[in-house]
Each structure stands twice: as C-alpha cells, then as structure tokens.
Design a protein around this nucleic acid. Structure first.
Lengths: 207, 207
DNA sequence: GATTGTCAATACGCTGGCGTATGGTTATAT
DNA sequence: ATATAACCATACGCCAGCGTATTGACAATC
C-alpha cells in the first residue's frame, strides 16, 4: 500500500512505488511523504515530484488544486497513520516497565518513521506542519505521562518527566540526523539509550 | 555594538540598530542575525534586508560577493560570540552544583540568544549552518560533561548525561518556540526546569 | 463506434529572489 | 578644487517554482 508509512523497518525500497500507467491522488501523497523523508518539506515541489513519478505537472493539477493541498493531504495521512500505529503498537505490552523501556528503545528501530518525524519537526515554521506536529507531540507526551503515572509517579512529575523524555527524543533525532560526522557508532548509541532509560525511568517500587 | 548578540536579556530593541548615512559589512551581518532571530535563516534575503536597512541591494553587493558570504559572516560572528560568552559567563561560578543549576536555569534568561540558537538549529539542512551548529553543540556537550564529572559522575555516564541534557535543551527550545498556543505559563515553565534539574543533576555526595 | 470521463502533455504567464552592470553621490585626501 | 575611493540607486537578465489553459490520449460505457 504505502512504501513510506507501512514499510518494514529497513526494507530496501524502490525509489518510486509502482509503475502503473496512471496515477491517483494517493500516489502523489506517497511520493510527497517519500520526498519529505529524504529531503524535507521544502523539497516537495510539484515539478520534481512529477519527474519522480514519471509524469508532468499536468497530472498533478488534476488531482490537487495546489501545492498546499498536497502537503495538507500528506500531513493528514501521516497523522492518521501515526495515531493508528504508535500507541496501538505499544498497548500490547502490559507491564508498565516493559512498556516504557520498549518506548525508549524504539528510537533504535523503525528508523524510517523517525526520519520522517524529524524532517517534519524541522519544518514547523510551516503553519500547517506546526499544527500537526503540535497535536502529535501532545499526544505522545500524554502517552508518556500516562506511562510514568503507571510507574507510580505523581501526575505533575509524570507530566514533566514525559516532557523531558519527548524533548530528548526530538533533540536527539535532529542531532543524529543532521550531524552525520558526529554520529555515534551503534554500541555508543545503545549505551546512550540505556543511560537515558536508567535516568528517566524510575525503578520499580517492588525491587 | 550589536543589538542581537549583545543585548540585555529582553530590552526593547529598535528594529534597525542605527541610522547612519552609510553602512558597513558589519551592519549587514547584524541585520542578518536579527532577521534569523525573528524569522529564521530562510528569511535572510538581500532585497528584504536592504529594505530593512533603508538602502537597495546595490549596497549589499558592494560589501559581499553573494548571499552565502553574508550568511557565512553572520555564522562566524555568532559562533565567535558564543564561544566568548557562554562558557566564560559560567566559569565564574565555582561550586559545581551551583554552576550546573545555573546552566539549567539559563533557559529562562537571555531569551534572545536562545531564540537565535533555535532558529539556527532549525536550519541545519543548510550545510554551513550544520557545520557551525555541530561545533557549538559539541562544545556545549563537552562543557556539560565536564560539569557532570565535577559532580562525581563517571566519564561515560557524564557524557551521556550531558548529551541527554543538551538534547532536552534543543528539543525544548523548538517546542516552546514553535507551539505558541501550547506554551506553558511561567510557573509551569519554572516547575519544568526544576523537575529537569532534580532529574538530571545528581544529588551532592555530601548531603 | 461514438461519447464521456479520467488522466496527462505542452505551452504559457507570473512572481520572488539572486546576481550584474553601470552610473551617481558623498567623503576624504592631496 | 579635484581625484579617488567608498557607498548606493537603478535597471536589467536569469532561473526556479507555482499555477493556468488548452489540447491529447486512453478507457469505460452506452
């Protein structure tokens, strides 16, 4: 269905999904998301997308009134997918400690989704992007807050801890994404994640 | 000297520094930094800067070969200033706990510099910006690492804690900057900062 | 097999932003 | 007082990227 959103963690993907003769609006949305993942929101240009899809922009303006509409549609699809997958994939885990640790270690998996998230977060100067990212951020913070409360933290503390956790996530993504030469190797990365877990997740009450 | 870099925390600033008859390259650099602070790197355009300075771009291209050169100069000036002021302003404080707490509470002061930092960090897709921000980031992380070691942490832990601290800083800045409607009020902000301090700064060994 | 609907190609205009060329103005030096 | 340098204005060319308009091709349907 969708190479960007529904791909397995790091499957090698073909640059353009399918090569059927004619395109749907959905195809443009997917191409847009793919482009955002690779080069950010600013790189979503109708002519270059058209070339990528093997057509001209005559096609695009049949499906969308303008560029903004495409970005809106892409954001909508991404947010919907985010809602569907994120919390659900974690609600399977019952034990709160296991769940929270899984959340933290998630940074090491499903790289594609993190890259997209990162690029979107870097484009919050775009007002529509900002709306979406704010909602998504609050949703994740709420989720984390919930988890910390399940671990016995007081609501106010849980909320602040959730914020701290999320801010670290966002900051780390950008750092890791953009400063390639400063990239830690995988062992170092693992150690960092475990340090964060030790620091931010309170110890079980019943040790 | 410089309204953007050397301003007092939140002094009301005139939009354009001075209105002398003729400009220097420095004036353009300052205007660029001011623009970055207000609207990000992408908003640095020579024609709009010229209008802001009350001249035309004929002036600009006398002082600089092109737009990139201006951005380079602005980044250089910013980084030099950052090196001069940041660590020095904190090296006054002797007691390591006081020093670290001061670092954390710094988020609440000197808003102007944080805003600039944030906008620069949001432009790391620009390669020259990325170089600078990477250096600055590493410098700050080193500084924090040093501080955590003075508090008795083992080097590896201190480094990871420093990373965590810095990532939280970066993430928080962007969150706070861009999601205006979600802005915490000042009390909430204070509580957040204190929570972060409690969570990330280890207790004194000699309680 | 003609019509209609769906998708695409081509050609065009418009705008914003960069950069150049050239000439004008002001200050400074001699 | 005039020559030179420093600074600025004006006018222009160029390109990327958006959006429009018109026509064309293919498929489905009748």
């Amino acid at each position: 269905m969708d190479a960007v959103l529904n791909a397995e963690p790091d499957m090698p993907q073909t640059a353009v999904s399918s090569d059927k003769a004619r395109l749907s609006a959905e195809d443009w949305v997917d191409a847009a998301l793919e482009t955002i993942k690779e080069s950010g929101v600013g790189a979503v240009a109708v002519e270059s997308l058209a070339k990528r899809l093997g057509v001209t922009k005559g096609s695009f303006y049949w499906h969308f009134p303008n560029r903004e509409a495409l970005i809106d549609a892409a954001l909508r699809k991404w947010e919907e997918n985010d809602i569907r997958t994120f919390e659900r994939s974690l609600s399977i885990i019952k034990d709160p400690h296991d769940k929270m640790r899984a959340v933290f270690r998630r940074t090491r998996k499903e790289i594609t989704s993190h890259v997209l998230f990162c690029h979107l977060f870097m484009a919050v100067d775009h007002p529509r992007v900002a709306e979406v990212m704010q909602r998504v951020s609050e949703r994740r913070i709420d989720f984390l807050c919930q988890g910390f409360m399940e671990l016995g933290m007081a609501p106010a503390d849980a909320r602040n801890r959730a914020r701290l956790t999320f801010m670290n996530y966002v900051g780390f993504l950008q750092y890791y994404q953009n400063f390639k030469s400063a990239r830690m190797d995988l062992d170092e990365l693992d150690e960092y994640v475990e340090h964060v877990i030790r620091t931010l997740i309170p110890e079980p009450a019943t040790a």
